[in-house]
């Protein structure tokens, strides 16, 4: 079965990935493997190379050295939704879709993110949360084997963020892509991911699985030690230790 075969191929794999800007190694021999359907969150301080890694995996940065393989279809949701302002919401989602029924698939994707009523709207009339959901629809309608999320929640207000978190989990459970979520929010990583990585010194310096069932609550006692470990790795002194 095709799906069985696909299970053997990782959603993304990088070996010895190195990328330097003006002599400074942002990625330095990084190894990474994301299993099919696995939700991985990547934490790191600003400038740690998170976005560079996303860009390499998305094929937007071809200057990196090392071996990279990804699923056939890679989709990305950027920090800013990056909708094409002169295309209506539906046309944004359908952009570049091939084959018969492209339009119907785009409509279905919009319905899935709760934007069916906005299909004919101009992107500039959407709220921040709506625009980001349209951006997710545009990524997921391609049925990607690897979905890259480059801090797509960071510009949203707290309430909108909670609802978009739920939406992402929903979509992920239904479509099952491998996900790499870049974030600087430790709680967000712990709520969403199967595995949380910390990028430091151009490599994955630390990783921890999160074995809890979803939906998770941020006050769950099992998350506290994971959070403490991650914060320590990120160079933030754990408040519980300073008391």
């Amino acid at each position: 079965m095709a799906t069985r075969l696909a299970q053997l191929v990782p959603a993304a794999q990088a070996r010895g990935l190195t990328r330097a800007f003006a002599g400074r190694h942002v990625l330095d021999g990084l190894d990474l493997r994301i299993e099919p359907g696995e939700f991985v969150a990547l934490l790191g301080r600003s400038g740690s190379g998170k976005s560079t890694l996303i860009r390499v995996l998305a094929g937007l940065d071809r200057e990196a050295e090392g071996a990279v393989t990804t699923a056939d279809t890679v989709a990305i949701a950027f920090q800013e939704p990056r909708l094409i302002p002169w295309k209506r919401v539906l046309d944004n989602v359908a952009l570049g879709l091939r084959g018969p029924g492209a339009r119907q698939r785009a409509e279905a994707a919009l319905t899935e993110v709760g934007l069916a009523g906005h299909a004919g709207d101009w992107p500039l009339t959407l709220s921040g949360g709506e625009a980001q959901r349209a951006s997710l629809a545009r990524a997921l309608v391609r049925e990607p084997g690897l979905l890259l999320l480059d801090e797509p929640f960071s510009a949203l207000d707290a309430l909108t963020r909670i609802s978009v978190h739920r939406l992402v989990l929903d979509l992920w459970e239904r479509h099952g892509p491998g996900v790499l979520l870049v974030t600087h929010d430790v709680d967000e990583a712990l709520l969403l991911a199967d595995r949380v990585l910390v990028l430091d010194g151009g490599r994955v310096a630390y990783e921890t699985p999160v074995g809890l069932d979803r939906p998770r609550h941020r006050d769950h006692p099992d998350l506290a030690p994971l959070r403490a470990g991650l914060l320590r790795r990120l160079g933030v002194v754990n408040p519980e230790e300073t008391v």
Binding site: L60, F78, G96
Partner: peptide
């Protein structure tokens, strides 16, 4: 240029890039 990256990720051909992004953007 960020819209150009979107076109790249969506795997638009060069003709599609010009038709959907560049020309309407220059209009």
């Amino acid at each position: 240029g960020r819209l150009g990256e979107v076109a790249e990720v969506l795997r638009l051909s060069r003709t599609e890039l010009i038709r959907h992004i560049v020309l309407p953007g220059a209009l």
